[in-house]
Amino acid sequence: MTGPADMSDDMTPDEALALDFALGVLPRAELRAAELRLLSDPAFRAAVEAWQRQLSPLDAETPGVAPPPQLWDRITAEIAPAPVRQAATPARRSLWDNVALWRGFAFAGVAAAVIAIAQVEPPPVPGAPPQILVAALAGADGKPLLSAAYDPLRGAVVLAPATQRDDEGKVAELWVIEGEQPPRSLGVIDIRGPNAHAVPARRLAGLAPGATLAISIEPLGGSPTGQPTGPVVATGKLVPV
């Protein structure tokens, strides 16, 4: 199926990705990467939403099935605020009582990093999740290179490349720049493919809104000096969603 009659040949990779995501055909890693991209790429999100609107009338064909009555109780149990403690306890619910947070820890095993970030933005209402932080990293020309999202339920920063880049014989290294501090390495990352990557949580302590993420191109194995040595190809600020 090739040739001028094949309209799908005329779609850009992003247009095809938006269609595939809305249709629901993506493999898991690409699905996760696309979900993260939705958070920081309005044009991509608009393209996905246009397809979702177009396809959603199909849902009318799917027969409804009543869920078992106890399902509502399970949902309530998960979202209910924890019981209020002694009067001495501040009215705002402590993070220590946040079930979702602890579920996140148990899942990812990365308590320190999650606390460091979640405490910056306490949940505004009981049962609300810790704040997700995102950064869109773009080059000096404004071209997006990747989306980064701090996902509190996974306790990790997940990176979703917006474009592919292959610097032969070199690797990309992710840095965080906090205020006047020198850049701190978050490790070598793979930005060649469309997959989402998780940065180990132990590197994330102290990551907060306003910090800048940057990517430099380094020799294999990462920067030999502990500071960026190659060109910085993209930067972006971490902001709450």
Partner: peptide, 16 residues
């Protein structure tokens, strides 16, 4: 296990 759905909320019959 068919039960009445919320089709009328989902899309107008015309859209489907």
């Amino acid at each position: 296990d068919e039960r009445p759905g919320a089709d009328e909320l989902l899309a107008t019959a015309g859209e489907a």
